[in-house]
Design a protein around this nucleic acid. Structure first.
Length: 773
DNA sequence: ACTGTCTGTCATGAT
DNA sequence: TTATCATGACAGACA
């Protein structure tokens, strides 16, 4: 729990930084107006504070384009930037990992990540990106750099998890500070109110719960968001669902970007397409957005389609962030899945599995993981195969899409929103049927099959594990309580517990009870023999073998199927005389040879006599002059010395050696059994731990897969979006059947002929297979 | 009487 | 070689 809290705290800080670096401010403001407190708190607070710098950067940058800093132009700017960095981020989708988060936290704020993550999208900064070519001022570049960094964070899952109830006062204070800084920028203070935060936390809790119970919130969140999207929390500007101005500004920004893009790239073959578009998290694929953005943005280059400001996109952004937050919680400790080529540019995988973006999820759907089942529904074949209510969402260039906004947006079916645009080819040229599947390589069949199996396994293992955890908590107490309660004759044992071995089941239990205070955890060191006749003197201090006894109880308690504690306790009446302390053994003196019959002087003599072992009786019969304890436990030298002191017959010596041998073997057997039991218990614990780990890893894997799917869908939509905006010299769109975008390792985006792209895709597809072999 | 468990003992191998 | 230990197998005691 502590680790989780720590992680959440760190995540919050990371997320703060992240958001500050992202240009999501305006969008976030939109979210602020929503009824989704957690986002408002987590996102807005930090972002607004850190965005201050970003904000000014943006302003400076935007000034060059005549965008008013306080106007809705910011929205446009951010939208444009988001698109660019989305495209830019196409080549660095990565599985979020905790390790990476840490790395990001300590990362140089400069944003020069290329060294540590060569293939990351940050490489774009150094690459011949759009900005570089166009020679925009440094401000832009910096902001983009930061944004790229933040995007990386997001891509890597660095988004802070919902803090929920664990939000510490420091966190709140930090957020408060950040918000205060941001108030100047127009961010509504009410959003930062603690009450809001409480609500947010509640929602966060739901989100976290969703991590295990898998998302029941989306619909509500979407509705709430939809209701409140209309007001910009920071600027206070009303933001109607169909805000014409907003798109215009956004369009302008985009237009500028694209213009730069065009200037950079002649849009011929191999034309370089520096994709610097905003963060992925921020820009959950906005199927709606494209139309609106295109609308006015790309006037010279693109045929714009009109659409209102994209509410759906914002909603999706929100959902994306929330998803990542929720994901973060569960993936806090995961590093395993990160083995997937982290920096592997999408170019590597981009066209590996064209038109098969979703089929991998079949196994997921089949998985019956309880907690995740609902999430799986997002990717379930049925859902994915469902006809998108508004296919236009996937077709940015279709002007008529805007009209369908409400229908789609109103839908609570997330699956529909995240629906991959694979089927849209008919409606739009840009939405080519050959849309590559950049992430297909990450979701290979084997991986998914494994997940399916793990899902099945987890169902079996998870609950038992939890149960065992609870049982372990009871464990220590249960053993003692059972033990003490079980010894009905403890009182009777008190009479002769110091020196007598138990003669019956009752006395034996007394022995065990007395031993409870003196037994040594490590192995049986004592020895006591069965008693057949009364001999109080000789009776060796019978010390019950508490450890083994308790362990049996424990084990049986943990798993009733293995051992039934009660039945075992019934058998406790046996002579559990292990681990007798050497001192107790020494206390037993030589038995008076004549006391073969019950001594009337000692009441317990009867019982004790019965407790005598066969060897003891034999020894007495043979008139062995020393106790069996000594015979057995004395060191060899002392034992030999002892033997030398007496004139013993051959029969006596033989008996003594047998007694010693048997006695030692007896203890050895006890130790052996104890070890065996310990081994079993340890194995049991190991199994439980492994089951827990397995369940945890499976959850993490599921989360990763989910995020991967989302990112893949983002990529698809962005691909279509970007591709759809590309125009050749004549202003005509490129045919997706003839051209394709390809991402290179340095972050640049190339427009290459489809044939070449397919060829490269095939080539890269073989590599992983070869590696496997 | 039967059964399961615990325990002691033996045989055997290892140290 | 002897002593000791470890362990499987067996049998007796016990509930």
């Amino acid at each position: 729990m502590l680790s989780l809290k720590k992680y959440l705290t760190e995540g919050l800080l990371q997320f703060t930084i992240l958001l500050s670096l992202i240009g999501v401010r305006v969008d976030v403001d939109t979210y602020l107006t929503s009824q989704l407190p957690p986002l408002r708190e987590i996102i807005l607070g930090p972002s607004s504070a850190y965005t201050q710098t970003q904000f000014h950067n943006l302003r400076n940058t935007l000034d060059g384009y005549g965008i008013h800093p306080k106007s809705i132009d910011l929205d446009n700017y951010f939208t444009a930037r988001r698109l660019l960095s989305q495209v830019r981020a196409l080549d660095r989708f990565q599985v979020p990992t905790t390790e990476v988060n840490a790395w990001l936290v300590h990362r140089d704020p400069e944003g020069s990540v290329s060294g540590s993550q060569p293939s990351s999208g940050l490489a774009l900064e150094s690459s011949s990106g759009l900005q570089d070519v166009t020679g925009t001022d440094n401000g832009v570049r910096e902001s983009e750099t930061e944004q790229g960094f933040s995007e990386d964070l997001e891509d890597l899952g660095a988004v802070a998890p919902p803090v929920s109830g664990d939000l510490t006062k420091e966190d709140i204070d930090l957020i408060d500070i950040l918000w205060r800084q941001d108030i100047d920028l127009g961010a509504g203070r009410e959003i930062f109110d603690y009450s809001h935060r409480q609500k947010e936390q509640d929602v966060d809790k739901e989100l976290q719960d969703g991590a295990e119970q898998e998302d029941t919130w989306p619909g509500e969140g979407a509705e709430a968001l939809a209701r409140n999207l209309l007001v910009d929390g920071e600027t206070g500007e009303s933001f109607p669902a169909q805000v014409p101005g907003g798109e215009d500004q956004t369009a302008l920004s985009l237009e500028e970007c694209l213009r730069l893009l065009e200037a950079t790239c002649p849009f011929g073959e191999n034309a370089e397409f520096p994709a610097d578009i905003a963060s992925l998290t921020e820009a959950v694929p906005s199927e709606r957005e494209p139309p609106g953005l295109q609308n006015n943005l790309l006037s010279p280059l693109l045929t714009g389609t009109e659409s209102p400001f994209d509410l759906e996109q914002q909603w999706q952004d929100l959902m994306s962030i929330m998803e990542m937050q929720a994901m973060e919680v569960n993936t806090s400790t995961s590093e395993i899945l990160y083995s997937a080529p982290p920096g592997d540019p999408l170019s590597t995988n981009y066209s590996l599995a064209p038109n098969t973006p979703i089929n991998q999820n079949v196994s997921l759907h089949q998985a019956s993981l309880g907690g995740c089942s609902q999430d799986f529904s997002l990717f379930s074949p049925e859902v994915e195969s469902l006809p998108v209510a508004d296919s236009s969402t996937l077709l940015p260039l279709v002007p008529s899409n805007s009209t369908n906004l409400n229908s789609t947006f109103g839908s609570t079916n997330l699956a529909g929103l995240f629906f991959p645009p694979q089927l849209n080819g008919t409606a739009n040229d840009t939405a080519g049927p050959e849309l590559p599947d950049p992430l297909g390589g990450l979701l290979d069949e084997a991986m998914l099959d494994e997940i399916s199996l793990m899902d099945l396994a987890i169902e079996e293992g998870f609950n038992p594990v939890q149960a065992s955890q609870l049982e372990e908590e009871f464990d220590s107490d249960s053993g003692l309580s059972l033990d003490s309660s079980h010894s009905p004759s403890s009182l009777s044992s008190s009479e002769g517990s110091s020196s007598s071995s138990s003669s019956s089941s009752s006395s034996s239990s007394s022995a065990s009870s007395s031993a409870s205070s003196s037994f040594s955890e490590e192995g049986a060191v004592g020895y006591s023999s069965d008693s057949e006749t009364l001999d109080l003197e000789e009776a060796e201090g019978a010390v019950g073998y508490q450890p083994e006894y308790s362990k049996f109880c424990r084990m049986s308690y943990q798993d009733p199927s293995q051992l039934s504690c009660l039945p075992y306790l019934e058998h406790v009446g046996h002579n559990h005389t292990y681990n007798m302390a050497p001192s107790a053994l020494d206390s037993a003196d030589l038995p008076p040879p004549g006391t073969l019959k019950k001594g009337s002087k000692e009441k317990q003599a009867d019982f004790l006599d019965k407790q005598m072992s066969r060897d003891e009786h034999r020894a007495r019969a043979m008139k062995i002059p020393f106790t069996n304890d000594k015979i057995i436990n004395l060191p060899v030298e002392e034992f030999n010395e002892l033997l030398s002191k007496y004139q013993l017959s051959e029969a006596q010596l033989s008996l003594i050696r047998d007694i010693r041998r048997r006695g030692k073997n007896k203890m050895a057997a006890q130790n052996c059994r104890k070890r065996k039991l310990d081994t079993i218990l340890n194995l049991e614990r190991d199994v439980e731990d492994l089951q827990r780990d397995k369940a945890r890893l499976l959850r993490e894997k599921v989360e990763f897969l989910r995020s991967l799917r989302q990112m893949k869908q983002k990529v698809q939509s962005l691909y279509q979006e970007v591709f759809g905006r590309l125009r050749d010299e004549n202003g005509r769109p490129y045919s997706p059947s003839q051209y394709a975008l390809q991402y290179t390792g340095d972050g640049s985006v190339l427009l290459i002929p489809r044939a070449l792209a397919d060829q490269q895709a095939r080539r890269q597809e073989r590599k992983p297979k070869d590696r496997r072999k």
